[in-house]
């Protein structure tokens, strides 16, 4: 390792430290990842099954045995909640990762390459941004009927990539004109090299922030579809739990131990991810910081 490489390595470490030292990012990560780990552990420890009707006595109030009671079909609500958390997060993150990869790829190509490719990508992006995704998703979900988890995640991804793609494109456009990129081009680096070595690292906080947003969007869309009654019915998810609660009019019957937990978990995850993205944004744009 020569001095130059070492410096590069150190500065990268420092970048990592900035991320960890940022209280917002740390808090948000703890909230999201912490809940995921808790849900996995709890799902193994729980002796009940989330979807088996008549697994426990019906309509139990909360107790030590059943922390959130049971629903009118005799299912332990706490067990449902932890399984649903895992499933919802997995669907959200799968959709998020797919959408995000597409967005990064297309955004960078459009922004850096420019030309006709840029025009085409931009147009498609605009179309997908303008279309209200729920409207299209519900058509597809209604026709497919018994929808699989992976299909669901991919469908969500189809409508999740467009907005980050647009933003990444404009970021790439801005970066392209910066001095160090021009220098890299003059020194003979090819396009791919510049994008990977110079543009991507400079967009990292930005990319992270957008990834969080895409995951939130996917999870929100999934919850919405499930609430309407569309979506994978073979697994239990947070939205499906809310749908069940709604069908049994749990809100106006005061069954707060039934509908509130899935609602709060959704918000908890969203807020966690949002705080992460907010912290990352602050790193990228220090002016935003509220002391």
């Amino acid at each position: 390792m020569n001095r130059h490489q070492r410096l590069g390595f150190l500065s990268r470490l420092k970048g990592l430290r900035v991320v960890v030292e940022n209280k917002k990012i740390l808090t948000g990560l703890c909230m999201t990842v912490g809940w995921y780990i808790f849900a996995i552990v709890a799902s193994y420890l729980s002796p009940y099954r989330p979807r088996t009707i008549g697994d426990v006595p019906v309509n139990l109030p909360p107790s030590w045995e059943h922390p959130l009671g049971s629903d009118p079909l005799g299912r332990d609500i706490f067990t449902q909640l932890v399984h649903a958390s895992i499933n919802s997060m997995q669907i959200g993150f799968t959709a998020g990762i797919v959408a995000f990869m597409v967005a990064t790829l297309l955004g960078l190509i459009a922004g850096y390459h420019g030309g006709i490719l840029d025009s085409v990508i931009s147009l498609v992006t605009e179309i997908f941004i303008t279309i209200p995704s729920l409207a299209i998703l519900l058509i597809v979900a209604a026709v497919i009927g018994r929808i699989e988890v992976i299909t669901m995640a991919l469908l969500l991804a189809v409508f999740g990539w467009a907005f980050p793609c647009k933003v990444l494109r404009s970021q790439a456009l801005i970066l392209k004109e910066r001095g160090f990129i021009k220098l890299a081009r003059l020194s003979g680096a090819n396009g791919l090299e510049i994008v990977i070595k110079s543009i991507l690292p400079n967009m990292l906080p930005f990319l992270g922030a957008w990834f969080a947003f895409v995951v939130i969007g996917a999870m929100e869309a999934e919850a919405g579809l499930e609430l309407i009654g569309l979506g994978p019915q073979t697994i239990v998810s947070l939205g499906l739990m809310l749908n069940w609660a709604m069908r049994h009019v749990a809100f106006t019957r005061g069954l707060i131990h039934w509908w509130l937990p899935p609602a709060l978990v959704l918000v908890w995850i969203f807020v966690g991810l949002f705080i992460v993205s907010f912290g990352l944004d602050e790193i990228g744009n220090p002016k935003l910081k509220v002391k």
Binding site: I216, E220, G224, L242, L260, A263, L266, V267
Partner: peptide
């Protein structure tokens, strides 16, 4: 701002 509308509605 992180509450989906319907969750706020339920509350």
């Amino acid at each position: 701002s992180r509450f989906p509308f319907f969750l706020l509605g339920m509350i």
